[in-house]
Design a protein around this nucleic acid. Structure first.
Lengths: 158, 158
DNA sequence: CTTGACCCTGTAGCCGCTACAGGGTTTTTA
DNA sequence: TAAAAACCCTGTAGCGGCTACAGGGTCAAG
């Protein structure tokens, strides 16, 4: 099968497959005479594995580690569990941070319950005040609220 | 004051200030004879405003909108409140997504409660299975679990 | 023999910075 | 007064995880 069919079967985009090959998540594919990549079922499986991990918000580095485990069938899988546990910790931490954030935003919103002119707007005033007491978003290993994850369903056009 | 002091006062990095100037969040600064940027207290205020918004995980685009409000003191501040409400919705949505994710990860972890060899590892096996039933992470306007937010406290070296 | 679907490589862009390289200017110290 | 240190400048490249071109080549059907 060629790259287009692999893409369909693993619900990926063609460019993403080439990208994964470039960064070493997928092995270099064999080629036809016309220089087209050719794939087999094992590639579908590996790519689905990667995509599944991405849906679980793992980083490509984490996935690389998992793939190394999967490629060494005699090793113990204790490390797999450990990686998962750590990943869960990241997610948990991110949830806490965001809940904190949400609370602050809601408080901020209370500062201006009715539409006035900008000069008197409590929200803008609070934002202008030096935000000294904020408990320093710890922020390791954690992404933002924004910035569309294009890889998974997003399909943002033009 | 020069850029270094502004950075200290607004708890930012010098490069970030230049970056904000480049992308139009801060106006172009006046210069000394030696071509150094010079700032006043108004700049400290504006930069603190921006940083405060960033701590609340707003995107630079959202901040741009807020700044436009702040710069038009006679307009109504209704839009400010609306923007905030929308931003809270983003955050809420992201929290829900992550909670979903966490549940899935915890289930996955149950699939392999004891260390075996990789061949029998329930986690890897589940990840290999085609993940058809996943409720398609909606994923608009939402960042990942990973990918250090360097701007806020991170200070990642070398 | 042309159309169109598919494929190729390579490069640039997204966000919000960070981190250089390779210079210039100002301040402090010896 | 000169040298060293601290600060500043511009410009460019990099991070992750892709996406989206441009500008071509290949292959099957009509």
């Amino acid at each position: 099968m060629r790259i287009g069919e692999l893409a369909k079967r693993a619900r990926t985009q063609v460019e993403t497959i080439r990208y994964y090959e470039r960064v070493g998540l997928l092995p270099e594919a064999a080629r036809t005479e016309g220089n087209y990549r050719v794939y087999g079922d094992r590639h579908v499986e590996r790519l689905s594995f990667i995509r599944h991990c991405r849906e679980l918000d793992m980083s490509l580095d984490e996935i690389r580690v998992l793939l190394r485990f999967a490629d060494a069938p005699d090793a113990s899988c204790a490390g797999v569990d450990a990686l998962l546990e750590e990943h869960i910790a990241h997610v948990t931490h991110r949830i806490e941070t965001l809940q904190n954030l949400k609370r602050q935003l809601q408080n901020l919103r209370k500062a201006c319950p009715v539409a006035k002119d900008v000069r008197q707007c409590g929200i803008l005033n609070e934002l202008s005040a030096h935000a000294q007491k904020m408990p320093d978003t710890p922020a390791q290993h954690v992404g933002g609220t924004h910035g569309i994850r294009k890889g998974l369903s997003g399909s943002v056009k033009k």
